[in-house]
Amino acid sequence: MKLLLFVPFLLLGAAGPLGAEGNGDLERLQGEAARLEAALAEAPGDHDLLLAAGRIQYDLGAFFGASSGREAAARLEAAYLIDRDPVTKAFLGAAYAYAAGSAGDYLARLDLARRAMRCADEAAAERPDDPLVRLLRAEGSYFLPDMFERSRTADADLEYLFARYQADRQCFAGLFDPALVFYVKARMSVKERLMDQAYRYALAGRKIAADDFVKRRLAEFLKGFEE
């Protein structure tokens, strides 16, 4: 039954505490979030602190289901109002998307999804060649309800990132681990119930992953396939 529990858990975008390693990451992120909140209490208008706090809250939600996404959106909204940077906007789009996916109220979900798509699309239009912006749009598409038909947008973003990586293996250096692209693709595949494809992309991602956090996420993802 492990997989049957795992599939809905992936679809909800909530990773949950599957193992000791996962718990370790969760605690580390929670500790980091608490530290940033304390720093923000002293400097509430600090753009970098707001951005960092928003990103941590987003990770807590998107990877662990430990945040509703609204906390991340609130921090990132504040950061975006100080500096209208496309990357911040892309993070804001992903946070809205996660919040839309986890919102219980139908009208709130529609409103958040609309905001998510607008932020992600505008950021991608401003910086179409920015890998982080494209990755965040794909991640956000994963959380949005099927009725918005964003899987094609996500596929296009991921294929763009794969093509960049195929041409230059160092193109994401300093931004994110390339295995993260494979991880997002694997999750999208689960959403579309393409299980073979999900498994292959996750295996490939695990093979090239360098970052420990991404390695553990992929290992946990693959655990779901092992009975």
Partner: peptide, 26 residues
């Protein structure tokens, strides 16, 4: 364009995993 682009991800997976794993046979 989409057909060409759709190759990139699959090609990477084939390149990274190779053909050695029988579980990936289709």
């Amino acid at each position: 364009l989409a057909l060409c682009a759709a190759e990139a991800g699959e090609e990477l997976v084939r390149e990274i995993l190779g053909d050695s794993d029988p579980r990936l046979s289709r």
